[in-house]
């Protein structure tokens, strides 16, 4: 039920996601204690193998592992060195494994890198973002944040706005949300919303204003204009005007609707500067929940059978 490696959110069914979120809820109380530590993973070693600079995700995993008393190694590597010179991904993984690593938390710019690693090592592999493929722990913490606010994910209307095509966050979130029975709509310029995403069970719209009024959650993705080849839209100004969440659009949201963003934020592009600071923006809450969800995963994937303190929901 909890897979050996977490490579894609596809591996988790509704029961598994619910268990991870329930466990995270129990563990969140640890974060609020003065002594923020559990002995569960004492003697275990977790390695953060990061081929992309991502301080927030790395720190989140590091804190999660340390709060469960695991030893943590941070290995920052350069993805470009892989083929031309330096050590290959496989050799690096083998080296770390030889040092007795129990879990590899991998962030890599190449889609599939975590899946490939999982075939080469015995250690548990957790995908902390692979290329534009998936970022399952981000999705789990987003699901957690939404469930904390709304009590349930079933029937929740979630609008995800932005660069769906190149977003690992979008992929994992859509599939996780659909698994949990949420109603997902993907919005953005057609250049960034490939029609194939409908096969994930999400609806597609190119008109943000048409879908905003009903939304329980408005989830904004970071947008970059410069991509390989032709740009996806004329200017950032035009993007902001058509698909950005400005104050006027934010005002149309339902009173209890959430505004979410995986960070880092492009203020003034996908989200207006003042909207990001509105109280309903739970962006910082997402960050805090990230530690609890990652503790939950490490606990369930590496820990014993014992119940976590605080219990489930």
């Amino acid at each position: 039920m909890i897979p050996q490696h977490l490579l894609s959110i596809d591996q988790l069914d509704e029961t598994a996601i619910t268990r991870i979120l329930d466990t995270a809820r129990g563990l969140r109380s640890v974060t609020d204690r003065p002594l923020k530590k559990l002995p569960t993973l004492r003697g275990r070693t977790v390695c953060n193998l990061f081929y992309e600079p991502s301080t927030r995700t790395r720190v989140s995993f590091e804190l999660a592992a340390k709060r469960l008393s695991a030893d943590v190694i941070n290995f920052q590597a350069d993805a470009r060195s892989s083929v031309s010179k330096g050590e290959s991904l496989k050799d690096t993984a083998w080296t770390l494994e030889a040092m007795g690593v129990d879990a590899l938390v991998v962030r890599h710019p190449s889609s599939g890198a975590a899946a490939q690693l999982s075939r080469w090592v015995r250690a548990r592999v957790i995908n902390a973002g692979d290329g534009r493929h998936e970022h399952p722990t981000q999705a789990l913490l987003d699901l957690f944040s939404m469930r904390e606010r709304f009590g349930t994910l079933a029937g929740l209307k979630v609008v995800i706005v932005g660069d769906i095509a190149h977003s690992r966050v979008a992929r994992s979130n859509v599939k996780g949300l659909v698994t949990m029975g949420a109603d997902v709509t993907l919005v953005g310029p057609p250049t960034l919303v490939p029609p194939q995403v409908e096969s994930w069970g999400a609806k597609v719209s190119y008109d943000l204003d048409a879908v905003l009024d009903d939304a329980d959650v408005c989830y904004l993705l970071r947008v970059q204009r410069e991509r390989l080849g032709a740009p996806a839209f004329p200017t950032l100004r035009e993007y902001a005007a058509l698909w950005g969440l400005d104050r006027a659009r934010a005002a149309r949201l339902k009173p209890d609707a959430l505004v979410m963003h995986p960070g880092p934020i492009n203020r003034g592009v996908e989200i207006a500067a003042d909207v990001a600071d509105l109280p309903r923006a739970v962006i910082l809450e997402q960050v805090a929940n990230g530690v609890a969800v990652r503790m939950s995963l490490l606990y369930l994937m590496l820990g014993g059978a014992e119940e976590p303190p605080g219990g489930g929901r």
Binding site: S82, V83, S88, L89, H108, S110, S111, G112, Q116
Partner: peptide, 10 residues
Amino acid sequence: LQEKESEFTL
């Protein structure tokens, strides 16, 4: 082999 045994995108 070492080139095929690398990241898919590489």
